[in-house]
Each structure stands twice: as structure tokens, then as C-alpha cells.
Write a protein that binds this DNA or RNA. Sequence first.
RNA 1: GCCCCCUUCGUCUAGUGGCCCAGGACAUCGGAUUCUCAGUCCGAAGACAGGGGUUCGACUCCCCUAGGGGGUACCA
Length: 525
Amino acid sequence: MIRTRFAPSPTGYLHIGGVRTALFNWLFARQHGGQFILRIDDTDAQRNVEASLAPILDGFRWLGIDWDEGPDAEGDCGPYYQSQRGELYREAADALLQKGLAYHDYARPEEVQAEREAAQTEKRSFTYSRRWLAETDADRNRFEAEGRKAVVRLKMPRQGVCQFNDLVRGEVEVAWSGEQDHVIQRADGSCLYHLASVVDDHAMRISHVIRAEEHLSNTPRQIFIAQGLGYEPPRFAHVPFVAEPSSKNKLSKRKLAKYLKDREFAKINQHGQAIAEKIGLETEADSFNPVIVDFYEQVGYLPHALINYLLLLGWSLDDKTEFFSPGEMLQHFNLERINRSPSSFDPQKLNAFQEHYMQQVPLKQKVAMVLPYLQRAGFVSQPPPCDVGPRLAAILEAAGDRIKVAGDILDHTDFFTDTEQLPYDEKAVRKRLVKPEQAITLLKRFREDLSATNDFTPPALDTLLHAFVEREEIKIGEIIHALRVAVTGKAVGFGVFETLAILGQETCLQRIDRAIALAAEAAAA
RNA sequence: GCCCCCUUCGUCUAGUGGCCCAGGACAUCGGAUUCUCAGUCCGAAGACAGGGGUUCGACUCCCCUAGGGGGUACCA
């Protein structure tokens, strides 16, 4: 049975790089009919683990990455919180001690540090002297009489090589002599990460450890622990980390300020912030930004777009295939084709995937995606009036590809605003209504046609305007832009005929009247 | 310092000795289309880190250098 795991710390947010690692684990397990386990790495136990974990679980749920065992999914390998598994780790430390593979060490931290620094100045690799190693009761008593406290250290081999086959990197060989006698248990009895991780992976029957490459150099000591405990070590696959936009540095949520200097990154951030503001979302810079999954959920991305983008960040099927349905991902994903070098996070390309998938979303579903944004921004009541569905469908149809993320609907709220309330863009009014000499005259004349017609459908309006243009012997550009500004307040927007039709005859006439008045005011000023 | 890993267009990548004077995608820049914007279509520009080998032949194999990254914690 293939079993993989992801072990997030309850930090309060789900990081892009973490999701990518989790995705690989999940895909690998699922395609083999295996299981995916979520284990909570809360050994630094802060008080409100639940609260800090919630956004992470929500993120996974949103993305459709489900887990067989973990929080809210009890299995027979629990508990799934490392803070509740201390007893297991202590037993393991004792077992290692018993076998002579670990020892009590009475060194003070600064004493080890001094040795380390000495090695560095002499430009040789550091090997602990084991001066404060205690294997007999006599030693222990002597050190304790000095007021020293013991930690448990691994007694690493000092010759030979550790060899393992990494599913991404291939054969890896490391000399044991370069490994340290790492501490696995503190004086207070609490245990450290490496021990915990090995014990849990074994207890949870993890078959494949797929994790970020910063753990590559931790692997030998984990193999040592596993073997010492008599475990069969899992298979390892070290995937390169996700790097910053246009750089090879590891992506980190701490360096947000730096990423914001990247123009494209800043643009996407700004776009999201604008949407968040309109829906009244409280945002904090360190938890709402394009490095955090929640950002994309809030702004209205499609989870599958993110997943597809992340899939291709460090993995590819061939030289052509870009789009993968969930089924295709499951079918084609493999560890062998994961790249060995880090790939940088490019939010622009993520957007390209989003736009592609957004174009495929059926109208009805788009309506459902967009509605909550209008409600949260106060343009549509909750529950919505019954005519909102068809109306929204018409708007979205007219919008075409202009709505790239669900929150973009908030750029087109002029359909929901009362005429008296409608904001008019000053520049647009000047350019399209005030400056062109004929604009107002033409608009007034075309208003007559509009009020006279009784067919307010886009094709009919199209015919109406073209007839007008012919009669007046003008070019269409001389009226159509003025018309758009008059009814929407803006210089850019959807097709004019669709816009008019959605607004309806009465509203159009009102808005034209208001625009004419406004233009007159502006001209007089 | 020491150990380990990585290095093809700006970015994601294809490429496992001849199919490659290097292919695709995003971005960029032109052009076409439409009432603006978005989109769509067509086109252009753009890379094998450097140096040595090996070979009839190297992006592909070996060595060195450089650059980048990770680890080196009583962090995870």
C-alpha cells in the first residue's frame, strides 16, 4: 500500500510551495490507489493550534486535496498531532540508547559551539569530541554533580558512506563522517524533529516520503535512526523548492516586501487587494498575498487553475501538454519526471491558466461564482431577488472573457447602480462627450431613436444605431463611444448593444439625460 | 569554513551523442480583426553559464572554474 503524507505546521496560512509538495504527495498516493495522510507538526506547540490550522485545512479542501487520515479523519495511526505523540518519541529515544546508537551527553551548548567554531577556523569539518558523553552511571553522576543536564545525542558512524536511492535525484551517497551527533531529545525529555519524523513515518506506515529538497541533507541521519530502530526506511523523493519570482531563492512568506518590487507580482497583489477591499475583507499583508493560497480563493480563482499551474512547476509530461484535467493528472503524474532544479513562481503564468480555465466555465456556474461577490460588496441583496440569475447570465455573456477571476465582476457594477448614483469618469466624459463638438447633439438625436423603438435586443439596437449612422452620415465611432460613456460612466466596457439591452430602455434614457446634463456642466465650467 | 545539490530563451519547460544552426507555453514586441477594453488569429525577437577533454560528431558523457541554492541548531 502506497501511503504518503504532508506534515504542515499550524502557522495560520497555506503557502504556495507547501501546496505544491502536498499536491505531489496526494497525486502520487491517489494514482496508486494509496492513501494520503495529514500529520500536524505542532511540536513547537503554540496555544491555539486549532485556529492556526483551520486556514490550512480550508485551503486543502478548497483545492480538492483530500486526506484519508488526519484532522477530522481519524484513522488507526493516530493521534495525528505530533504534540500528542511525545511518549512514542521518548520510547524510541530509549531504544536507541539501549542499543548504544545514542548516548547521554552532558555538554553545555556553548561548549559544543566552541568546538564547532574551532573546527571552522581550522577549515576542517566539525566532529564532536564526545567529551561529555556518559555511558556509565559513574560518568553520569560525576557530570550531574557539576550541575550538568543530559541531552540524548545520536552516536553517528564515523566511517563508511550512507547510500540511498532518491526517486528524484537518483543515487545519493554521503560520507557518514560528515554527519553530526544530532540531539534527538532535550534535557526536559521533549524530542526533536528528526526523531519524531522517523518514528511517525514508521508508525503511520508511510511508504514514500516526498518532501522539499532542504531535507535532502537530513536524510542520512533519518536513515540512521530508522535502521537503529529496526525500521525499513521509506522511499525518499526530494523535490526542488519553489523559488521567488524571477530568482532562485526559496520562496518565503517573510520576504513579501521584496516580491512586491517585482512588477507583475505587485500587479497581481494589487488586483487582489482591490477586490478584497470591495467585498469588505479584512486583509493583513502577511496572510493575504499571492504567496498564500487563501488569496486565490478569496479573489475568485478556480482551484483547478492553481493546481494545474503548480503541477507544471517542476514537473512536465512532455514538450507540449499544458492543460491537465484532474483525471489526466492522476493518470500521468510520476516522480521520475520531477525536475532537479528549483523553479520560480510566476504569477503571470498562473493567470494564464486561470484565464484559460475561466473561459471554459459554463455560464450557469459562472453566475454562481460571481454572485457572492456582488452580495458581499452590497450590490445584490441576500437572498438574491429572483430576476438576478438571468440578468447576471446576460451580463456575464456580454462580459465574455473580461471576467478573469470571479471578483472581477466588481469592475462592472454599473449594471447594479441607480442612475443618480452612477459615478462618471471625468476623463471619459471630457474625451467623449465634452470635447467632440457633435457628441451631445448626436447623442440627443439618437436618444430619440432609442425612446421610439420597442425592440431593445442587441441585434435590433445594432440595426438602429447603424441606420442612425447612415442617416447622419457619420462614422460609428463618433457616436458609439459617447453612448458608452453616457450609459456606463466609463470609457471601456462591454459591447455597447449588449450593454444597452441589459440596462433596458428606461435606464438608458435616464442615463443619457444625466450624461447630457453632466457634459453641459463640464462645458460651462 | 565544511558537506551536499543545482545550472537550456525574462519565466515554466522539451531534449538521455547525430532527428537541434535547439521545440512548446507564459510574458514581450509587431500586424490583422471589432464600437472601446478583453479576446481571437498571424508573425517577430529571445537560451544550451565558462573553459578544457572524450568522440567522426556534443545541450546531451568526464573534469575544472564560476554562479545559485540547501544543510551544517537542544528549528522544522
